[in-house]
């Protein structure tokens, strides 16, 4: 084969390869773009419909954009339907649960990793086994128990199952196992008490896992439905998901009002997610989080 022919063939192959590569690039991006649009579409429509004048969101065929955007439905939710209070309930319950549970899980996780105490390993093994038990299993007796204590329809009652979590303890323990012993010893030699060692050595070193844990506890509590539904029947104490489900019963026809309620419920968690996206996605990708 003469050098000229060889060059021409190589050129053809190269051009063919470049063409195939370009087609593949277009196809991959078209598929991703289509998927992303379809995924985001219901959420975009939710926002759009929440701004439509009454009746427009139930038009057939559906409308995509409000003819005259209005905040009337948000106003009605806040003034007439007391949703500001419900929003505050959700926020307060999620924040308190997060602070208490991250603190208790961190203390226990560190103890299981680095402090010796009688029965430690056997208790930890038992906790690991219990990871498979779903929350719903204890729900009925827990309700009866709280009823006996007068805690049904109280904020405390809704907080109680989230005060500590086996999974949280497990997460912190795995992370705390990696703390160098020399740092703990150094602090003790300097005369630091155990609480002080925890607070000024362990907590700063465990920061990444504590942030992930806090993030997921907050989102999980904010989004939780079954337990708040069971334990909070007083509408003044309810959280957003429960209030929204109840609102649907009376206002099914008010599409725009319901969409405004859904926006108020979803927007804070989407905001937190977008702000802390990296911790969030890394937390899931490393398999350190249960849905």
């Amino acid at each position: 084969m003469s050098p000229g022919v060889q060059d021409a063939t190589a050129g053809c192959v190269r051009r063919d390869y470049a063409l195939r590569r370009r087609v593949a690039t277009v196809l991959v991006h078209a598929a991703l773009a289509a998927g992303a649009v379809l995924t985001v579409l219901p959420l975009v429509w939710m926002v759009s419909a929440s701004l439509m004048p009454t009746g427009e969101a139930s038009a057939a065929p559906p409308r995509w954009l409000p003819s005259a955007p209005t905040l009337a439905h948000y106003r009605e939710l806040v003034t007439r339907l007391d949703l500001a209070r419900v929003f505050a309930n959700s926020l307060g319950i999620a924040l308190v649960t997060t602070i208490v549970s991250v603190t208790l899980n961190a203390l226990a996780g560190y103890a299981f990793a680095r402090l010796r105490f009688p029965g430690r390993d056997r208790i930890f093994a038992a906790l690991l086994l219990a990871l498979v038990i779903p929350g719903q299993l204890g729900m009925l007796p827990l309700f009866l128990m709280l009823r006996g204590l007068g805690l049904v329809n109280t904020y405390l009652g809704v907080l109680v199952p989230g005060l500590a979590s086996i999974f949280g303890i497990f997460l912190v323990r795995q992370y705390a196992l990696g703390i160098p012993q020399s740092l703990l010893d150094a602090a003790r030699v300097d005369g630091a008490g155990e609480l002080r060692v925890f607070w000024s050595v362990v907590v700063p070193l465990c920061r990444p896992v504590l942030v992930t844990l806090a993030l997921f506890t907050f989102m999980g509590t904010w989004n939780d439905f079954l337990w708040p539904l069971v334990v909070l029947s007083d509408s003044r104490l309810q959280t957003l998901p429960v209030a929204l489900a109840n609102l649907l019963g009376e206002h099914v026809q008010d599409t725009e009002l319901m969409m405004a309620g859904a926006v108020l419920t979803v927007l804070p968690v989407i905001g937190v997610f977008l702000a802390l996206q990296r911790s969030y996605i890394e937390g899931i990708a490393s398999g350190s989080v249960k849905q």
Binding site: A49, P241, L244, A262, I281
Partner: peptide, 30 residues
Amino acid sequence: FRAALFLPVVTTLVAVAVVWRYVFHPRSGL
């Protein structure tokens, strides 16, 4: 792309179930 595809995961199940109730509407649904 990842953020867009992941977005529904972080949303509140009850809220998006409400939204989908209307998405599934036979006449006016998306």
